[in-house]
Simulated assay, not measured.
Amino acid sequence: MKFTANPFVRLIGCLLLITTLSACDNTTEQAYTPDSDANKATINSTGPQGDHHDTGWPRTIGSADEKITLAAQPKRIVSTSVSVTGVLLAINAPVIASGASQPNTTVTNKDGFFTQWSDIANQRNVQPLYHGEADAEIIASVAPDLIIVTATGGDSALKIVPQLKQIAPTLVVNYDDKSWQQVAEILGAATGHEKNARHAIQQFSDQVQQVKQSITLPPQPVTAITYYEDGSGANVWTGQSAQGKLLTQLGFELAIIPETVKGELSQGIRKDIVQVSGEKFADALQGQSLMLFSADQRSVEQIKTNPFLNHLPPVQQNQLYALGLDTFRLDYYSASHLLTRLEKQFSQLQ
């Protein structure tokens, strides 16, 4: 059914959008305080073109579906994907509301926000709009001036992008082949928070170098996975995933995923994971160590008792490393937590 916003909602939204955009000309980027190639950040603006676009509106942003033009710096951003909301928060973008996941799980709070940044979202009064599937009418009701959509993943609102474009400019971000830093650069360009994005990236880069120098790597190469709770299979993280990119930055070598185990992927055409199960499960785990994302010690014990995996070298040699429940989707906050855990685990190997 085609979405048609309530006339009153649309009138209020338009009035608020006009007021907001007219106030943006004198907007300055807030100080960076993260704790209080279809869509590469390609910009044409009224200022000089280049890698950094700290001034100049209107500007045209490359999106995963088509370019969008923003008349002024956004002030009321809605993230339809809980997967990228943390990046928006880390660069101090004015996100007012977000889609949410199932509440009160091992990785989410009562609002359905990821625990690594839920406290910050609450401090900034970010409103949870819905749980699960995106709802265009609910999004329209908060009168956004920029809507962020992810191209893939379980929380992608790609199918309602035509409706969302009737509400506000809509940026489609493809994150399945990007690190959170690359996503931050894209969102920084779209929101006028380039300086904050660069600051967050540099701060994290410094932490990466410090951790890299302080750890001793486990047996290489490694396979990075998210283990299914029922033991039937796993998502294997590829070198194009944020997880794989970060491990590589730290000096880890990712084991090759055999072509014979690769099949159809769900949740769109994804480059960051290979989904394996059944008889292909064990064959996909070619590493001498297993890096377990979105996992705690319970996952380690489950793998040890899985009869289809107990013959593998990393299981027999106890080279299983749980990297935390908040690492399924990496953003500034969860990636920083991951570095802390890696340093704690692998500095003990020295």
Rank of each mutant, 00 (worst) to 15 (best):
S336V: 07
L323Q: 04
A136P: 09
T238S: 05
A5C: 09
I68N: 07
D272S: 13
I167L: 03
I12W: 12
S63M: 06
A72D: 09
T27K: 11
D145F: 04
P258K: 08
S81E: 09
L323W: 01
G239Q: 12
N104S: 14
Q350A: 11
L246I: 00
K178N: 06
T106K: 14
E253I: 06
N6L: 09
I225H: 06
G62W: 01
A31M: 11
D326S: 04
A151I: 00
P218D: 12
Q213Y: 10
A140D: 10
Q209F: 00
P94W: 06
L247R: 05
P144Y: 09
T248P: 02
G263W: 04
V149K: 04
Y333E: 05
Q123I: 03
K40Q: 14
Q73T: 08
R298G: 03
G56I: 04
V107P: 06
D35P: 00
H52D: 15
V95W: 07
E194L: 10
L70V: 03
G188P: 02
I120G: 11
F3G: 00
Q202V: 15
S83F: 01
A168E: 03
P307G: 01
Q267H: 15
T216C: 14
S334G: 06
Q350V: 00
D51P: 13
C24Y: 14
C24N: 15
F113P: 04
A72P: 02
L339N: 04
L89W: 01
L292Y: 02
G188N: 00
F3C: 12
L158G: 09
E133A: 13
W117R: 01
L312N: 00
G56Q: 03
A93H: 01
D230I: 00
H53S: 05
G50C: 13
P74G: 02
Q73S: 05
D145S: 05
G112S: 10
R198P: 02
L88I: 02
I147W: 07
T33F: 09
I148T: 12
L290I: 14
R76K: 12
K280I: 05
G192W: 02
L339C: 08
P218H: 08
G268S: 10
D230M: 04
G251H: 10
I167W: 05
G132C: 06
I77L: 00
P58S: 09
F346T: 10
A140Y: 08
G239D: 09
P313N: 13
A134K: 09
A190L: 02
V236Q: 13
I77H: 02
D37P: 14
V107E: 08
A71V: 12
I186M: 03
Y321M: 01
S179E: 01
I61N: 02
F204P: 06
L285K: 10
S277T: 15
E301V: 07
S79N: 08
D272G: 11
Q203K: 15
